[in-house]
Design a protein around this nucleic acid. Structure first.
Lengths: 231, 231
DNA sequence: GTCTATAGCATGATAGAC
DNA sequence: GTCTATCATGCTATAGAC
């Protein structure tokens, strides 16, 4: 039998190639390579290496020479795909956020019961971050290094995601299904617990906690905080 | 009337000078200055500047020239206090952790009731991070940049702090005061919520949430999760 | 004990061959 | 489209005057 997570993974069917193809189309201005299949193939290598290196030593500490050594590119070759180091940051950041937003919205679209909406949103966020772990870690750590404009959008998208949780709680309260005296703060806490999953992934792995267990635990905590009586 | 936070702040009476004096004594090997009062005075300037710069642009992006400009030192003068840039990292890191551990242990030392212990530990952690915000933010962000040995201790101390929460919960369960089916994960979540306070300080400021309100909210959530009946 | 001056080097970025 | 060779910059770290 398929677990929820496996089901989610299959539904999403998010191949690296697909993501990178979207990235390519969005950024034809900064990428000098014209043939899509060549560009996409190499973007995968570049982004993979960047995420790997940045998550161990940090983006700023990673030099383009490190990146070349890891990805097998030459400096010159790399510069056909980015105009400068910051482009790398923007390239990776923007896409991760877009994906989170759309996945989360889709996950609750067809559900009306407030508690089930909450469960769906929490699971979707956790499952997505599990699949795209390096992306999430990178996004969190590097917001502060973004150019001002990109930082503003990054913060706005994060707020928007928190608002998804907030709206679910609020509407549940209005319907009399939830009891909560501070929906705003509870939404914040949900976000914090989502973050803990990908920021402290190693700790949870050491304690042998699966993403499904983690999701269940959080949903139980929320049920209890919102005083939902459950079967 | 004094709030809990003001009371804590007064009890701690943690002056920058005292912290820096301890730092000086611990690191006489790397600091070339012999007169304590001179060294301490200048360490305050250096550490203040480092924390300020690192929390906006990140430690790696901060150059020693930035640091000199901000602290009013010359490059040569600075190098009397550190042997290299990494020393700065180690200097600041180690002390923050020591302080957290000792404060937390002290906060619960004279309390026996499990729920009150939990409340005390949560409050102490939040209040401390409120006072030492730049220190906490820096510690979290820069663990990955530490030399291997220092990283190991950093992770161990973090685990130790989580264990404080874990032990309180476990002993409460044994005494029949708490009901919990996963003390380990709950302790993890407490830690995550502690982190959210200092990592997302700006967000909470925008939403006009005080540290006392935040503490109360978390303690309520925990009471509910642990099924503590409260007056 | 603090400064100025500078060595020595690694980095991001470019030009041009293939 | 990718590579090698090279530039200019700006960094950490040191030496030595005051």
């Amino acid at each position: 039998m398929k677990t929820d997570f496996e089901h989610f993974k299959h539904e999403l069917s998010l191949t690296k190639a697909e993501i990178c193809r979207q990235l390519y189309v969005q950024h034809t201005d900064m990428i000098r390579i014209k043939k899509e299949h060549v560009a996409v193939k190499n973007l995968i290598r570049i982004i993979d290496s960047t995420l790997r290196l940045a998550s161990t030593k940090g983006f700023h500490a990673m030099t383009l020479r490190d990146l070349c050594a890891d990805s097998g590119f030459s400096i010159g070759g790399l510069y056909a795909y980015i105009r400068n180091k910051n482009d790398l940051l923007v390239l990776i950041q923007g896409h991760g956020f877009m994906l989170t937003r759309s996945t989360l919205r889709k996950s609750i679209r067809d559900i009306s019961d407030p508690f089930e909406r909450l469960r769906a949103a929490v699971s979707a966020h956790l499952f997505l971050s599990e699949i795209m772990l390096p992306w999430f870690y990178f996004s969190f750590m590097e917001v502060k290094s973004l150019p001002k404009a990109e930082m503003k959008t990054a913060i706005a998208v994060e707020q928007e995601i928190e608002d998804i949780f907030f709206d679910i709680i609020e509407s549940g309260v209005r319907q009399g299904v939830f009891r909560s005296n501070n929906a705003r703060l509870l939404a914040s806490m949900i976000k914090a617990m989502m973050q803990d999953w990908y920021l402290k992934r190693r700790k949870h792995r050491n304690q042998s906690i699966s993403v499904s267990q983690y999701a269940d635990f959080i949903i139980d905590m929320l049920a209890c905080s919102l005083k939902v009586s459950r079967s």
